[in-house]
Simulated assay, not measured.
Amino acid sequence: MKKALVLQSDFGSSDGAVSAMHGVSHSVDHQLSIFDLTHDIPPFNIWEASYRLWQTMMYWKKGTVFVSVVDPGVGSTRRSLGVKTGTGHFVITPDNGTLTHIDRTAGIIEAREIDETINRLPHSGESYTFHGRDIYAYTGARLAAGVITFEQVGPRVDVPSLTHLMVKKPQIHGRVVEGLIDILDIRFGNLWTNIQRSLFKEMKVDYGDTLEVVILHNGRPVYQNEMTFGRSFADTHMGEPLVYVNSLDNLAVAINQGSFAKAYGIGTGSNWEISFRKVKE
């Protein structure tokens, strides 16, 4: 039975790269259902590629095949992988850290290195700079269409050997909860953290309480302020900051009808730490 194929990359849409990936996938099976997750990952940003996979995968049917190509090491000795997740999804991607968030949450139960002698677009053997088309889209489409089984992707590799990005786990110290700024709600400039609502509520914070928010970049403070913990943006005036629970059930920070990220020059990743402290009344 055919499975959906979902493509992600940092290629953008200003040239024919994405269309070429679609074309290769379609040539494998013209009835294959092909979708785009995003092709606007910032160039070479493996962290964001990892996060967007995690953000999206849980809402797709079991068996869906994801192809993620953010590959600054294209043409090098880095491995090309196919993995099966604990949720029953499949990912075709370089072994460069793109699987970090998925492995931490859904888990990876099996990994295989792509056998390029079988799973490579015919007559592309001398191409070393477009593996997204020649290897990943081609292999992903063959797996989604049922042309190959997962076992036929290639030889099995040890899951612990996969490359991971550094991640700081959220934790509580007294009245302070700490974590990372995982990603931006890009269009609106909100900060999405990796601090789960369930962990945050252990501090017995109620809606309407005041929190002190501190943001560090490479260990240096770049922002500190007090703001309200609210249910939605309606709990603050326009232009005021707010702490809220986002659509993934994690803590987030925003400016009502403004971009927090642009206002304060905030980025994302393992070197952007954030903490919340309940202010005593």
Rank of each mutant, 00 (worst) to 15 (best):
M1F: 11
K3G: 00
K3F: 06
L5D: 00
L5F: 01
S9F: 05
S9H: 03
D10W: 09
A17I: 13
V18C: 03
V18L: 11
V18I: 13
V18P: 00
A20M: 13
A20L: 13
S25V: 07
H26K: 09
H26R: 09
V28R: 04
T38L: 07
D40P: 01
F44Q: 13
F44D: 11
F44R: 08
N45T: 07
N45D: 15
E48N: 11
S50I: 00
W54H: 15
W54E: 15
T56G: 13
M57L: 13
W60N: 15
K61N: 11
K62Y: 12
K62V: 15
G63Q: 04
G63S: 09
G63D: 08
V65D: 14
V65C: 13
V65E: 14
V69G: 05
D71Y: 15
D71Q: 05
G73S: 15
R78G: 05
R79S: 11
S80Y: 08
L81F: 09
V83H: 04
T85D: 04
G86P: 05
V91L: 15
I92T: 01
I92P: 00
P94L: 05
D95F: 08
G97H: 10
T98Y: 02
L99T: 01
L99H: 02
L99N: 04
D103Y: 03
G107K: 07
E113I: 08
D115P: 11
T117N: 15
P122V: 03
G125F: 11
G125A: 11
D134R: 03
Y138Q: 01
T139P: 06
G140S: 10
R142V: 00
L143Y: 09
G146S: 11
F150P: 08
E151R: 06
Q152Y: 05
V153D: 07
P155H: 13
P155Y: 10
V159P: 00
V159E: 02
S161M: 07
S161A: 12
T163S: 10
H164L: 14
V167L: 10
K168I: 09
P170E: 02
P170W: 04
P170H: 07
Q171L: 09
Q171P: 00
I172C: 06
V177I: 14
V177K: 14
E178N: 12
E178S: 14
G179I: 07
G179P: 06
I181F: 07
D185R: 13
F188C: 02
G189Y: 10
S198I: 06
K204Y: 11
V205L: 15
D209R: 03
T210C: 09
L211P: 02
E212P: 02
V213Y: 04
V214P: 00
V214I: 05
I215Y: 04
I215N: 03
H217P: 01
H217K: 14
G219H: 08
P221N: 03
V222T: 12
V222G: 04
N225M: 07
F229M: 08
G230Q: 10
F233L: 14
A234F: 11
D235P: 10
D235N: 14
M238A: 13
M238D: 14
E240F: 13
E240D: 15
E240V: 02
P241A: 06
L242T: 04
L242N: 03
V243N: 03
V245W: 07
S247I: 15
D249T: 11
N250Q: 13
V253K: 02
V253C: 14
Q257V: 05
S259C: 12
F260V: 08
A263W: 02
G265P: 04
G267K: 01
G267R: 01
G269P: 01
W272K: 02
F276E: 01
F276I: 05
R277K: 15
